[in-house]
Nucleic acid binder design. Structure first.
Lengths: 300, 300
DNA sequence: TAAAAATACTCCATAGGTATTTTAT
DNA sequence: ATAAAATACCTATGGAGTATTTTTA
């Protein structure tokens, strides 16, 4: 017994006429007669009464009609669901984002993605670049917004946003009066900086630029999440290099000042595992590219 | 796409191994590979990732798995329902019964039928023998409990119960003191009797026996439903011939007295249309036969 | 090299076709 | 006489089989 039998039976049950039903099904009448006979034989139950000059449903036939309709509805829904999932319109996606993306990059991407794929169940977590790599390994996330470069053969990434790092300092800090800060002026400052393991490349870039300016930064707190960093800055524990977009999180007590050239550039990329091949993932990457293009981030 | 594809896919999705799944399905592994490929091609969506040395579900595959399971559950339920209906264990049956069956015959039959076929939806209505024939024509009932004989080619019936008619009269009636009533004693009585059209044969039998006893019964009320008849008897409007089993409806104010030979016999039969061929109907007729046998009604 | 899936091909069961018969208005 | 379903028979698609190759752990 196959779906065909249900389709055929439902056609006959509605038309109550083998000829018309066969036409509707685009098959010949004898074939239809055959299939219905097979169906009845297999079920061991007559579904139709072929009374002279017209066809009627038996009691069992009526019940089977309603059941068969339900099966067919489920059937088409199953196909629909799987096709939507295949096109990435339906499904599940776990995203991690590095803290610095929280204010400019992330909201625009999420907004567009939600609007375009409302039926995708998106899980979002703040996670540092380095920790995201572990989550990829455990298959706990499918996509990440992080800061390259990363050295992993099995992970692909596309950089789509670059911004200079700026200095965040308490508004009562002596340097707050300056328009622009030269690194040399920071020789004696206390720094709030993330652990090197959370982003070795950026960490090294910062420390080497300081070296060139003639000093080794004195780190008083190793903290990563931007909110925590800003909190410490406001509390006058020290100053911090932060992504320019953190200005959007402006809070009283803190001022932001650009750094005199050469700039420290923070890159943001969308990353995913080479081995995951989920349509939803690709729709997400597309959205990231679209947003970058719309915002003009791609030709900087 | 056919049910086969769902069965095959579910096997692979559970085993995550084409070889084992094929064994479970009693087919060869290449055939299974083929069918799954066909399925994916038809859906236009990959359901499985054949990574080296093991098989995994894609996101779409996981969704399809749950949907396919639902379809299969519905599928088997549809088959089950239609087979139960085919055996008469499930369905709908409309029954009409003549009023005189209400006290002995009907309750025993209903009790047994309900117990044996709890999933049949039984509709029950009190209707006179004559009116039942009209309901058969309109297909409003499939089975009736009525009083033969009936002269209809298209209706079959089996008589399964016979009882004498007795006389119902008010307890204050002069004849209430008699043990047994002779018809001759009733020459001057007022009778409550049903209309001839509601049961011509019985009506004729009664009137002709009265004629033999030397009088024409004087009918003061033409009423059929037993409850109404007994009401009128209690109100001393007249006396009535009623089925013996109506004694079970004994109410204060009424006495029942047998009639001296020759007895007026009331037969009860189960009847159905020759053209209806519902399994439920036949189960009902079987139950009637069973009850008649159990009660010893069949060898009187 | 061993285990698993994919490929290549062969075969036959059966869905579907055409022609015809049966049956009841 | 006609309309509709059933029957008879034929054709060919494709599902399932066996043998083999490919692939990677």
């Amino acid at each position: 017994m196959e779906i065909r039998h249900l389709r055929y039976f439902l056609a006959v049950a509605e038309e109550l006429h083998f000829g018309r039903a066969a036409t509707r099904l685009h098959i010949a009448q004898p074939s239809l007669t055959q299939q219905i006979q097979n169906l009845e034989a297999e079920l061991g139950v007559p579904l139709l009464v072929r009374t002279k000059r017209r066809v009627e449903l038996t009691e069992a036939g009526r019940l089977f009609q309603t059941e068969a309709r339900l099966v067919m509805e489920h059937w088409t829904r199953a196909i629909q669901v799987v096709q939507q999932a295949g096109h990435g319109e339906l499904g599940q996606l776990s995203l991690a984002y590095a803290g610095a993306t929280m204010y400019r990059v992330l909201p625009r991407i999420l907004q567009k993605f939600y609007a375009q794929y409302p039926r995708v169940n998106l899980t979002v977590n703040e996670t540092s670049t380095e920790q995201q790599l572990a989550l990829f390994d455990q298959n706990l996330i499918q996509v990440g917004l992080l800061h390259p470069p990363i050295r992993r053969e099995d992970i692909v990434y596309q950089t789509f946003f670059r911004e200079p790092m700026i200095l965040a300092l308490s508004e009562s800090h002596p340097l707050a009066t300056e328009e622009k800060i030269d690194l040399k002026q920071l020789a004696d400052e206390s720094f709030i900086l993330f652990q090197r393991s959370q982003g070795p490349w950026l960490h090294d870039q910062i420390t080497s630029l300081c070296q060139q300016a003639g000093f080794t930064p004195r780190v008083v707190q190793e903290t990563c999440p931007p909110n925590a960093v800003l909190g410490l800055v406001a509390a006058k524990i020290g100053v911090a290099f932060v992504a320019e977009s953190l200005q959007l999180a402006a809070r009283s007590g803190i001022v932001f000042r650009p750094i005199a050239a050469p700039p420290i550039l923070l890159e943001t990329a969308v990353a995913w595992s080479k081995t995951t091949d989920s349509p939803v993932l690709h729709r997400f990457v597309e959205v990231v590219r679209d947003v970058a293009h719309q915002q003009g981030w791609d030709h900087q």
